[in-house]
Write a protein that binds this DNA or RNA. Structure first.
Lengths: 201, 201, 201, 201
DNA sequence: ACTTAAGCGAGACGGTACGTCTCGTCTTAAC
DNA sequence: GTTAAGACGAGACGTACCGTCTCGCTTAAGT
């Protein structure tokens, strides 16, 4: 999604000789998609509106992104990239960083839209959900699980706790505060999360 | 929503003389709505389909429920009623019950649909969200907050913890496990939640 | 199609209680169809254009005329109604009238469009062709065949001639002159046709 | 069109240096056009389909035949070449041959498609029509007119008949029987036509 | 009993978005 | 400098729902 070039996304038919894809149109479409995602939400995002705002033919959108899900996933890609949890050697610091990553990502309004679109059964787009999980959720979750296991190994985290459960506490709580309740203030949240997981005061 | 009579819902124009509202049609519509909610999801729920399945004119649906949100909220009312957290005198028991209530409610497939429809910015229906919160979320949240405060008062919960934060831990974690990750197994989850909040092993 | 009222055409679902069909919209659509038929031809006649010009929703057109052919057939109905050949007692007069009917009908620009659309394999619309034949061609052809048979019976027409062949001479020649070569002048044509069939000078 | 070389058709950019025009592509395109004309009809003939079937780029088709009409006219050229009416010295034989030529030509399914496409106002392509007439209709018509005039001169044809009218009788009747009514059986038709024109039994 | 307002089924209507199709033009790379 | 490949803007296709509306029948409350 980032430095690697837009890599795996939007490579429809293998490009041959013909006219090269218009990067201008591509950028316009993605920009229009981002704008409309924020303005209208995922459900109300209409391909025809994207095309109109991007001043592009509807066919051009469909040519490159066969479904709304793929278009959104690519348009919002940068916003929903969360990365992985590093291994700093300090459980406390690892957990704080993990929390911070979640908070940062979830605080982006665009990410909120995409995450709910991927998660919600309201408009359950299985392909979108699967792609989202594979690309963004699993890598982070795996690295976070390793951080927790390191903490348990060092006895920084009370023994006997279930790793999967702690992950859900971490993710769920941040999800709840940032997206559901939509607390604007996230000051000190990462530290609280860390303390909770580590069983500190 | 329950025995008290369907109370505030579905009181469209002030009823005067004329023909009384057909309870049969009403029940048919709500049943059809529930069925289609599960089959199609919130977004794909079409009023015209509800009317067809209920063998009722589209007008009849619109007469009583001006928006899809209100129709859904009432149709799914019983499934999303969570009640309040009791005061048993035992912090441990109060918290276990509170967790259990969340788990039970969130485990209902219909509740999942409605909760996401209310929560998700994907189809942000502010009225639906507001009504949902006022009727179902706030009462439970208030009573749960009181239970936590009692626990803090009795020093059953480590001091210095933020009540609002603990509430979000509780709700968010259950939300994550039951709806997002969609773990079918909820065995022992309530006890884990209680222990986490109370700072036990 | 004529005085009898629009009779058999455009009676889609049997009308029940609901809102009555808007005669205004109906008339607007048919008028727009006629205009566009003359301006654009049958092939280039677009339902969306009809709707736009009639200031009507596209769905309204589709509701009543499921295909372009049916719409055109009804819109042009009056222009392509040819009637039947009368029995005046005089072979000469019957044949002159028959020729005149063909000439009159084929001379209408709208009829030309519809006839070719029905006839031409270029845009062979089998339904249109069949409906056109049943409603307009066959009745006339049958009555013209009877007129020729009466002429043969009275020996006004040279014996030994094939009735079907003479019919094709009649229709084909007028078709050729009025539609293919598009002679604007039809003066004396009916008399020439009559004389040819009757084997006169 | 025939041995004379494809003469006037399809000489777009002046043939000079560069890569010579691919005769293979040319033949493929014309063959594909013929096939699709029969399969789909003139209206439904899509340039993109021609290109696909000929395994050729759409551009290549457009380069050499700027319109669908010209492409069709050339592709079907051989089928619609009718030649001229000879002067055998016998009016009866000349007229029989003229009729036979019409019957043979009109009986070709491809010719039917092209003739209607040229004739029909449904898709009135003035250029196609004009080219068709200049190349195929007029030469035959002129020679047929001369044959009739010879017959009138020899008094083989009843005097006082209009040459143009008789031509239209000839063409129109065959058109009607072979294309409109689509009689498969043309046995004896040429003789009937001859007898009619000559005023015989 | 008579009136009359409302409930209700039925469905027409103007809109709008869908995803697919073909059009004819254009741009580029390969040969 | 022809060719293949194909991107592109344009716009029609026929379908699905939307939410509003206009009917005409039915029903019961209020007189």
């Amino acid at each position: 999604m980032t430095a690697a070039g837009r890599g795996p996304e939007s490579t429809p038919p293998p490009r041959g000789r013909g006219r090269p894809r218009s990067e201008e149109a591509r950028a316009d479409i993605l920009r229009a998609t981002r704008e409309l995602l924020l303005e209208e939400g995922y459900t109300n995002l209409a391909i025809s509106h994207v095309a109109r705002r991007a001043r592009v033919a509807k066919t051009t959108v469909y040519r490159w992104w066969p479904t709304k899900g793929e278009l959104v996933l690519e348009a919002a890609g940068a916003c929903i990239a969360i990365g992985e949890v590093p291994d700093t050697g300090s459980t406390s610091e690892d957990l704080r960083i993990a929390s911070e990553q979640l908070i940062q990502t979830f605080s982006d309004p665009m990410a909120a839209v995409v995450i709910f679109a991927a998660i919600s059964p309201a408009d359950h787009d299985p392909d979108l959900a699967a792609a989202f999980r594979d690309r963004h959720v699993y890598p982070w979750r795996m690295s976070a699980a390793r951080a927790i296991e390191r903490g348990l190994g060092r006895a920084d985290i009370p023994p006997g706790r279930d790793v999967g459960f702690l992950l859900d506490v971490l993710v769920g709580t941040v999800l709840q505060r940032t997206l559901v309740v939509a607390h604007p203030e996230t000051e000190g949240l990462a530290e609280k999360m860390r303390d909770l997981i580590m069983g500190l005061g």
